[in-house]
Simulated scan of single mutants.
Amino acid sequence: MTDTPTKTDEKPAHRSGFAAAAREFVLIVVGALIVSSILRAFVGQMFIIPSESMENTLLVGDRVVVEKLTDVKRGDVVVFEDPGGWLGPEESGQKRGSIGRFFEIVGLLPDSSHGHLIKRLIGMPGDKVACCDEKGRLLVNGQPLDETSYLYPGDAPSQMEFQVTVPAGRVFVMGDHRSASGDSRVHLSDVDANGNNPGDAAFVSMDKVTGRAIMIVWPAGRWGKLGVPDTFKAVPAPGPAPDKPSISLTPPPK
Score class of each variant (00 low, 15 high):
residue 10 E to A: 15
residue 12 P to N: 11
residue 15 R to W: 13
residue 15 R to D: 04
residue 17 G to N: 11
residue 17 G to F: 04
residue 18 F to V: 05
residue 20 A to D: 03
residue 20 A to T: 04
residue 25 F to P: 02
residue 26 V to E: 01
residue 26 V to M: 02
residue 28 I to Y: 13
residue 33 L to Q: 01
residue 34 I to K: 05
residue 35 V to F: 06
residue 36 S to K: 03
residue 40 R to P: 02
residue 41 A to N: 01
residue 42 F to M: 03
residue 42 F to R: 07
residue 43 V to K: 02
residue 45 Q to F: 01
residue 50 P to D: 08
residue 50 P to N: 12
residue 51 S to K: 14
residue 53 S to M: 14
residue 54 M to E: 03
residue 54 M to D: 02
residue 56 N to I: 09
residue 57 T to P: 12
residue 59 L to S: 11
residue 62 D to T: 13
residue 64 V to S: 03
residue 66 V to F: 03
residue 66 V to M: 08
residue 68 K to T: 04
residue 71 D to Q: 11
residue 72 V to W: 04
residue 73 K to P: 00
residue 75 G to Y: 07
residue 78 V to F: 02
residue 78 V to I: 14
residue 80 F to T: 06
residue 80 F to L: 00
residue 81 E to I: 07
residue 83 P to Q: 01
residue 84 G to D: 02
residue 86 W to Q: 04
residue 88 G to Y: 12
residue 89 P to E: 15
residue 91 E to Y: 15
residue 92 S to N: 12
residue 92 S to F: 14
residue 96 R to P: 02
residue 96 R to G: 09
residue 100 G to E: 02
residue 102 F to K: 07
residue 103 F to S: 04
residue 104 E to L: 08
residue 105 I to S: 06
residue 105 I to V: 08
residue 110 P to I: 09
residue 112 S to T: 09
residue 113 S to W: 08
residue 113 S to Q: 02
residue 115 G to F: 06
residue 116 H to G: 01
residue 119 K to A: 06
residue 120 R to E: 00
residue 120 R to T: 00
residue 120 R to C: 00
residue 120 R to K: 04
residue 122 I to C: 07
residue 122 I to V: 14
residue 123 G to K: 05
residue 123 G to C: 04
residue 125 P to G: 06
residue 127 D to P: 06
residue 128 K to H: 08
residue 129 V to S: 06
residue 129 V to R: 07
residue 135 K to Q: 14
residue 137 R to K: 14
residue 137 R to F: 03
residue 140 V to E: 07
residue 141 N to S: 08
residue 143 Q to N: 09
residue 146 D to P: 04
residue 146 D to I: 03
residue 148 T to C: 00
residue 149 S to N: 11
residue 156 A to R: 12
residue 162 F to P: 08
residue 163 Q to H: 13
residue 164 V to D: 03
residue 165 T to R: 09
residue 165 T to D: 01
residue 167 P to T: 06
residue 168 A to I: 03
residue 170 R to I: 00
residue 173 V to R: 03
residue 175 G to Q: 08
residue 178 R to P: 10
residue 183 D to C: 10
residue 184 S to K: 08
residue 185 R to V: 15
residue 190 D to N: 12
residue 193 A to I: 00
residue 195 G to F: 14
residue 196 N to T: 14
residue 196 N to K: 15
residue 199 G to R: 04
residue 202 A to F: 05
residue 203 F to G: 01
residue 207 D to I: 10
residue 210 T to V: 15
residue 210 T to M: 04
residue 217 V to A: 07
residue 217 V to T: 13
residue 218 W to S: 08
residue 224 G to E: 07
residue 229 P to R: 01
residue 231 T to I: 05
residue 235 V to M: 06
residue 237 A to K: 12
residue 238 P to V: 11
residue 238 P to N: 14
residue 240 P to M: 12
residue 246 S to R: 15
residue 249 L to T: 10
residue 251 P to G: 15
residue 252 P to C: 08
residue 252 P to N: 12
residue 253 P to M: 11
